[in-house]
Amino acid sequence: MAELQASESKDEPGSSSVVKIMKPPTTRIIPPLNFCPVERQLYRSAQPSIINQPFLKDLNLKTIIWLASEEPQDDFLDFCSNCHINVEFVGLMNEYAYKNVNPWDSLSEGTIRRALEIICDKENYPLLVCCGMGRHRTGSVIGCLRRLQGWNLASVSEEYRRFTGARGGRIMVELLIEGFDINSVQVDPSKLPEWLG
């Protein structure tokens, strides 16, 4: 639309009959679905698409934790390499060390632990955690992070369900979060983000 106006106004420079649109439509910033800040410089969302790229640039991300079992789309990977964003693949289907056999399986404890260890290292910030829809896998990791922070389970559940959409939360995910052994996460205390210390 903006280009169209530009060419119209160039048409006849001297003519006063040319209608100039004085107030072109403002650009819209479109965050990915289910986007929300979690803590300072830590964000969560669904898989970003092309229309989210201007927004992602504003976040100045250093790392993206990819939790889906499928590879992201190529344009997304191109964007990340152009912006020097490091993509950490955690929970891919084909990594034999992780037992995710189906895209709809929950994350394994090992996968969550690996994601948390990335989150607990401030060198990786600003950081985005995402999966396909930003609901259950992202919710599992953020839920376990909240337990690590000492949140009580009711508050963790409330937050998880806020992002699960009309079909609601899954008890299985909540059991996973509740049963997760937070003491198994290995962190370097000197690298903890400020809000975790």
């Binding site: 929300c36 800040p37 300072r40 000492g150 949140w151 009580n152 508050s155 937050e159």
Partner: peptide
């Protein structure tokens, strides 16, 4: 004594601080 953190309901960061 519980040391468990209870955020208020509907708590979330909006932007930065």
């Amino acid at each position: 004594p519980t040391k468990e953190l209870t955020p208020p309901e509907n708590f979330a960061p909006v932007i930065n601080n």
